[in-house]
Design a protein around this nucleic acid. Structure first.
Lengths: 86, 86
DNA sequence: ATGCTATGTAGCATTAATGCAACATTAGAA
DNA sequence: TTCTAATGTTGCATTAATGCTACATAGCAT
């Protein structure tokens, strides 16, 4: 649910949100948001925004996250929702 | 070479630029920038900026470009430069 | 209960990505 | 040569992503 006029966005194409499995992959590795943020080099709130899908990341950030979580970009981000588990 | 105070960026991490093979994949399909831009749904100049690597795209845009060019994101974008051909 | 850690919410500042318009240049086609 | 298509350059406006600070909440220890 909306929480400020600042974070409503979610890409420039509202009909095509980007789904992600960041939280799933992060917790699988036993990392807190803060720890992942440190590895990736961003503010820990940024990880939160992404996990809550309040906006989608830049490609640079997506690539760094994928590397930190040891996953392919396509395994972490998709236009189609992920089923739980895989 | 700089061409305005507006397009110097290239991600928030200047030490880690994102390389891409958009132009190669686009010309392989015989598309002009305008045509690719239309498929992707962005301004044709945006494709130019990306091909010249003046900045790196959002993840949403990267995903759309990959789909339009029938490639995986990881085949089109990388932190390490691509060798020509592959 | 108290404290600590992780996470959510709110608000605002800054910057990068994108749109867009106008003009220059280059290569080819006719 | 002239015309046209494709691409490059400049400049500026707008918006989304990110940083950052502060406070709230919930769970889990001790």
């Amino acid at each position: 649910m909306l929480h400020s006029i600042y974070a409503i966005p979610m890409s420039r194409n509202p009909e095509e949100p980007v789904y992600n499995r960041i939280e799933e992959a992060r917790t699988f590795l036993g990392l807190s948001r803060q720890e992942l943020a440190d590895k990736v080099g961003v503010h820990y709130q940024t990880i939160g925004y992404l996990e809550r899908q309040e906006y989608s990341p830049s490609l640079v950030l997506a690539l760094r996250i994928a590397k930190s979580l040891e996953q392919e970009v396509s395994e972490l981000f998709s236009f189609t929702p992920f089923k739980k588990g895989k």
